[in-house]
Structures are given as structure tokens and as C-alpha cells.
Amino acid sequence: NEEPLPEGWEIRYTREGVRYFVDHNTRTTTFKDPRNGKS
């Protein structure tokens, strides 16, 4: 039961299956979860 991502964020996966987060607001990507700060 995960809380929803902030507005404008999306979860994607690399070809290796590593989860990362896309911030469409700033057009950046990060491996850090914007909901809780954990990677």
C-alpha cells in the first residue's frame, strides 16, 4: 500500500529492471523515491 507519487512524477524501470523516478516538472530523473526519500 504505497502512497501515490507527487504530481508530475512517474515510475519507470531500466532495461535491467532497476526502478527509478521521472520528475516531469523539472525533466529530471532520480533513483531516490520522492515519497519518502529512500532509494
Score class of each variant (00 low, 15 high):
30 T>E: 02
3 E>L: 11
20 Y>S: 01
36 N>V: 12
17 G>T: 02
33 D>R: 02
28 T>Y: 07
22 V>S: 03
24 H>Q: 08
22 V>N: 02
16 E>R: 14
10 E>R: 04
13 Y>D: 02
10 E>A: 07
33 D>G: 00
20 Y>G: 00
12 R>E: 06
14 T>W: 03
34 P>I: 01
37 G>K: 08
1 N>K: 13
26 T>S: 09
30 T>D: 03
7 E>W: 10
28 T>K: 10
17 G>F: 05
19 R>K: 12
29 T>D: 05
8 G>W: 04
22 V>W: 12
39 S>L: 14
37 G>P: 11
27 R>N: 15
4 P>H: 08
13 Y>C: 07
29 T>A: 13
30 T>W: 06
3 E>I: 11
24 H>Y: 09
18 V>T: 11
26 T>M: 06
32 K>G: 06
4 P>Y: 07
31 F>W: 12
34 P>R: 00
25 N>S: 08
6 P>T: 03
6 P>K: 06
22 V>I: 14
37 G>M: 07
32 K>Y: 11
13 Y>K: 05
39 S>R: 10
20 Y>M: 05
32 K>R: 11
31 F>H: 09
7 E>N: 12
10 E>L: 05
37 G>T: 11
15 R>M: 12
3 E>C: 12
2 E>C: 14
1 N>H: 14
1 N>V: 14
7 E>I: 11
34 P>Q: 01
6 P>E: 04
24 H>C: 08
18 V>M: 10
2 E>N: 11
13 Y>E: 06
1 N>M: 13
10 E>W: 03
12 R>F: 10
19 R>A: 12
9 W>Q: 01
28 T>C: 10
31 F>V: 07
30 T>F: 04
26 T>Y: 04
24 H>E: 05
38 K>S: 15
32 K>V: 13
1 N>A: 13
21 F>R: 00
34 P>G: 01
37 G>Q: 09
23 D>M: 03
36 N>E: 15
14 T>F: 02
4 P>A: 11
3 E>P: 11
18 V>A: 09
35 R>F: 04
15 R>G: 12
22 V>H: 09
6 P>Y: 03
31 F>M: 10
21 F>I: 00
36 N>P: 15
18 V>I: 14
18 V>G: 06
25 N>V: 09
35 R>A: 03
30 T>V: 05
20 Y>I: 08
39 S>K: 12
30 T>N: 03
27 R>T: 09
26 T>F: 05
31 F>A: 06
21 F>N: 00
13 Y>N: 04
6 P>W: 04
26 T>W: 03
1 N>P: 14
10 E>H: 06
20 Y>F: 11
27 R>H: 15
4 P>S: 09
35 R>Q: 02
25 N>C: 13
34 P>D: 01
12 R>Q: 09
15 R>Y: 13
1 N>R: 13
16 E>S: 13
9 W>R: 00
7 E>V: 12
1 N>T: 13
5 L>T: 03
8 G>T: 02
12 R>M: 10
28 T>R: 11
28 T>G: 05
11 I>V: 12
38 K>I: 15
19 R>P: 13
10 E>D: 07
19 R>M: 14
8 G>K: 04
10 E>I: 06
8 G>P: 02
3 E>D: 13
6 P>Q: 04
